[in-house]
Each structure stands twice: as C-alpha cells, then as structure tokens.
Amino acid sequence: MKKNLPILIALGALIVLGLVRYEHFASEYNIMSFWRYNSMFALISVGMAFVIITGGIDLSVGTVAALASVVSALASPYGGWIAVLAGAGAGLLVGVVNGVIITRMKILPFITTLATSLGAHGLALLLGKNDAVSVSSDTNFANFGQGDLFGLPIPGLIALGAAVAGWLALRSTRFGRHSLAIGGSEEAARLMGLNVNRTLVAVYAVSGLLAGLAGVILAAQFGAGQPNEGVGWELFAISAVVLGGTLLTGGEGSIAMTIAGVLLLGLVFNLLNFENGLGYISLSAYWQSVIRGVFLLLVIVLQARVLKQRAHKRPLVETGADAGAGPAAG
C-alpha cells in the first residue's frame, strides 16, 4: 500500500485543485465527458497492464485501435452489433498474431508489436483510402460511443466492466496467477509446468481485443473511423500502467492502480484544458505527448532506483538468513 500512496496523493491533490480553481470542474457535463473520452485509454491500459505484468510490451495498441475504428465504420451499414463485433474482432486477430509470433517464432515483443503496429497503420490507411470513414447514420452504432445507459455513458460502463473483470482475473484466476509467474521468471514458470505459450497468446489477445473495443468506441464517439488516430496511445497506456506501480520488468502489477494512473493522466489534461479556458496559458494538444513522456521518464527512473535498492538489500537478507540457519542446524 505504501508504494501506491504517491499516486493516490497526487490524484487527490489534482481533484482538490480542480474543485477549488475551476467553477465547472465538478459539473455533470465535465464528469461524464471525462469518463466517456478516457474510457478508450482505460481499455488499452488494462490490456497493457497484463502484457507488462508478463514482462512484455505491446506497441501496437494505438494503431490497432485506429484499424478497429475503420473496420467498425466500414461494417456499420450492416448493423450496430455487426460493427462492434467487426472492430473488436480485428483487434483480437492482431493480438493473437502478436502472441503467436512471440511464442512460436521467439521474436521479442518489442520487435513483434512494432512491426504489427506499422502493419495495422498501413492496413487502416488502405481500408480507409487514406481518409476518415464515416459511420452509417442508418443504424444505432453511434449509440455505442455517444449513448447513455441508466444516465451513464455506455463507453464508460464498458471500460468499468473491463477494469473490474481484469482486477478479478489478476487476483482470483489461474490466468492472473500464471501471468504474474511468467513475469517473475518465464523459465521458472516453465519448470513449474505452466503452459507459458498459451498464457502469453491469451495475454496479447486480451490486449488486442481491448484495443479493438477502444477503436470501436473511437469510431462511434466521433462518427467516423480514424486511420491516423491512435498515435501515442501506447505511450499513454504504458505511462498509466507504470504510474500504477506495475514493474516494467514484469511479475508485479495492479489493475486498480493502473486505472488510477489513467485517471491521473486524464486529470492532468483535463485541468490543462480548463487552464487554457481561463486564458492564463495556451498549450496546444501537442503538449500532451510532452507531458506523457515526462511522466513516463520520471516513473521509470523511480522504478530503476527502487529495483536497485532491492538488489542491494537482497544479499543482506540472504546473508542474515544463512547466519541464523547455522546455529540452528548445529
């Protein structure tokens, strides 16, 4: 719990700042808009959390979301649910391809997902003919991104469901335990008899599926498939996951704190928008990438220091254990 205090304190401080400084910060419109928009980032971050927990990385989530948005837009004339399934299926397919290449061909996740990222972007441009693809207005597909259920945004409820499912899976299922074991030591996991390849394929499939759902929401929310959208989304997801305390080396992580990371990053950009509205500063959207990069760099540096401290402490603990064992054995 102690290691999570900094992000929780920072999150609380930003909320207090927003409440005190901005008149409409706590308005229903701002809260619902914030939840609706950031649902896409929450989805890809949950998938990314599982990938990083296994010691991997998925650089394709942004372009996979863009591809899924185009696929769902193209499928939207055939019905809302057809469009949703088509977009989610496209993401799932790319995720399975990533997992198979990584496990069967033994290619590093960084290289694999970088290649599929480029491929997904190119395919999105081909399908969209290098332009946005309008969503059909003859079906109810747009409600998937713009509609409400019981007064709550549908995209937000989907993201909430995915977060709860991910939290339960990591805490209480064999899939979650195996993911953590693989991140701790893949070789040890194999020696324990775990089906490492199957778990890794499932992890990347989940990441692809959630990225696909994010793309479906993107198309439904903005009324068009966006082949050039999604650039930098993987950086947002990695930042949120790492801010939430998940180690880049794998073997340790939290879905709940990943969502806290999403909220923290989302609040930073939300507050910047309010500040722009006051007229005291004027920051373009490009500053979002700068801020994400700074956040990620700071957290990686802090993680490196923590891991270094652990490495220094471990020999001392082991030596103490050996010293205690000697007299007892005698």
Score class of each variant (00 low, 15 high):
4 N>Y: 02
8 L>G: 11
14 L>R: 02
24 H>N: 15
25 F>M: 07
29 Y>H: 14
34 F>W: 03
36 R>I: 06
38 N>V: 03
38 N>R: 02
43 L>S: 08
43 L>N: 03
44 I>F: 04
44 I>A: 01
45 S>F: 04
50 F>I: 04
64 V>A: 03
64 V>R: 02
70 V>L: 13
70 V>Y: 11
70 V>F: 14
70 V>G: 13
73 A>F: 13
77 P>E: 10
78 Y>R: 15
83 A>K: 00
90 A>Q: 08
97 V>D: 02
97 V>I: 15
98 N>F: 13
101 I>A: 13
103 T>C: 10
105 M>N: 06
106 K>D: 12
111 I>P: 03
111 I>W: 06
111 I>F: 06
119 G>E: 01
119 G>I: 07
120 A>G: 00
120 A>K: 05
123 L>T: 08
125 L>F: 08
127 L>Y: 04
135 V>G: 05
136 S>P: 02
141 F>R: 03
141 F>W: 08
143 N>C: 00
147 G>M: 03
157 L>F: 10
157 L>Q: 11
161 G>A: 04
172 S>D: 11
172 S>R: 12
173 T>I: 13
183 G>M: 08
186 E>H: 04
186 E>T: 08
187 E>K: 12
191 L>N: 12
191 L>T: 13
194 L>M: 15
196 V>S: 00
198 R>Y: 09
198 R>G: 09
200 L>N: 10
200 L>M: 15
200 L>Y: 07
201 V>L: 14
204 Y>W: 11
210 L>H: 13
213 L>A: 11
217 I>Y: 08
219 A>I: 09
221 Q>V: 06
224 A>C: 08
225 G>K: 04
227 P>D: 08
230 G>W: 03
240 A>D: 12
245 G>D: 04
246 T>F: 08
252 E>K: 15
256 A>M: 11
261 G>Q: 06
265 L>K: 03
267 L>Y: 01
273 N>V: 05
279 G>A: 11
286 Y>Q: 12
287 W>M: 01
288 Q>P: 09
294 V>C: 03
300 I>Y: 07
311 A>I: 06
313 K>R: 10
319 T>H: 11
322 D>S: 13
